[in-house]
Design a protein around this nucleic acid. Structure first.
Length: 257
DNA sequence: GTGGTCGGACGATCAATCAA
DNA sequence: TGATTGATCGTCCGACCACG
């Protein structure tokens, strides 16, 4: 990122390190844990950080959390929604030679291939899944590795140009903490959310209770924005709260492929 | 209290490689 | 040809600092 800097982050206590699983601050969707209903948030888990596919230039420059919507909440918050544009990604290198492949056990050791419940994919073992049996209580930590393993198992990609992101997984409608927001820790106040709604339309409730397919509204888009193209056959029909997050995430991912 | 800066951990992506 | 691996690139956490 930036090339010059004088401050030294706390290397001895990497707060986001997997070696500190109890220091959960964000969820799979990138939503800060404090924005979850307390009853569903495990205090002992640390799930993977969820990143947006493409941060806007402002957030990228500031190294701050962005969201899929344009303008993003951060740009709205700081009063420059018109400058909220996707950053450009450079093309990945091709023709990079690689050595012999090793089988792995996740720790860098050579092992035999492991089988898991999803196409040989190992289960994501999160501490918070221990008390959850059938998914009756939804937390972000439940589920399987939202990685490229299962990408492409859903209907063929639709052109990216036809896609606008559905952001139900991002915006919390719980009352924001009374302490309002602090810094950039994406603790948007209810006032911020209301402002955003006033400007750009309603945002989705969180967590959703049922999957709507296609979504009846695109919560983060300006009302005049072009509507996305959806498959005629929904890739997901799950109606329980369990797993909704990952399903929506998977869907979002699938449309890019 | 608020916002800006920034190092670096780690998540996402996808081409190269493997194996059936 | 689909699955797996590993390199690359990007996001953003969280500490620190400046400012009003």
């Amino acid at each position: 990122m930036s090339l010059s800097g004088t401050h030294a982050p706390d290397r001895d206590n990497p707060p986001n390190s997997a070696s500190y699983p109890n220091m959960q601050s964000v969820t799979d969707s990138g939503m800060p844990m404090h924005m979850f209903p307390l009853s569903t948030v495990s205090t002992t888990s640390r799930s993977k950080r969820k990143q947006v596919k493409n941060a806007c230039t402002n957030c990228q420059k500031a190294c701050k959390k962005c969201d899929e919507c344009r303008p993003c909440l951060r740009c709205v918050k700081y009063g420059h929604p018109d400058q909220c544009v996707d950053s450009q990604r450079k093309e990945r290198k091709k023709g990079v030679k690689r050595g012999k492949y090793k089988k792995r056990d996740g720790k860098g050791n050579n092992v035999e291939p492991v089988d898991g419940p999803f196409l040989g994919m190992p289960l994501l073992q999160s501490p918070s899944t221990e008390h959850l049996s059938t998914g009756e209580t939804y937390t972000e930590s439940v589920g399987f590795e939202p990685s490229s393993y299962h990408y492409g198992h859903y209907p063929p990609a639709i052109p990216k140009s036809n896609v606008q992101m559905y952001c139900a997984d991002y915006y919390p409608m719980q009352e924001a903490t009374s302490s309002a927001h602090s810094g950039d820790n994406h603790e948007y106040t209810s006032q911020h959310i209301q402002d955003h709604q006033r400007l750009y339309g309603p945002v989705a409730s969180y967590p959703p209770t049922t999957i709507q397919y296609p979504p009846s509204q695109l919560p983060c888009l300006p009302h005049h924005a072009p509507q996305p193209t959806y498959y005629s056959t929904p890739p997901y029909t799950k109606s329980s709260t369990a797993g909704i997050q990952e399903r929506m995430t998977d869907y979002d991912d699938s449309v890019y492929r």
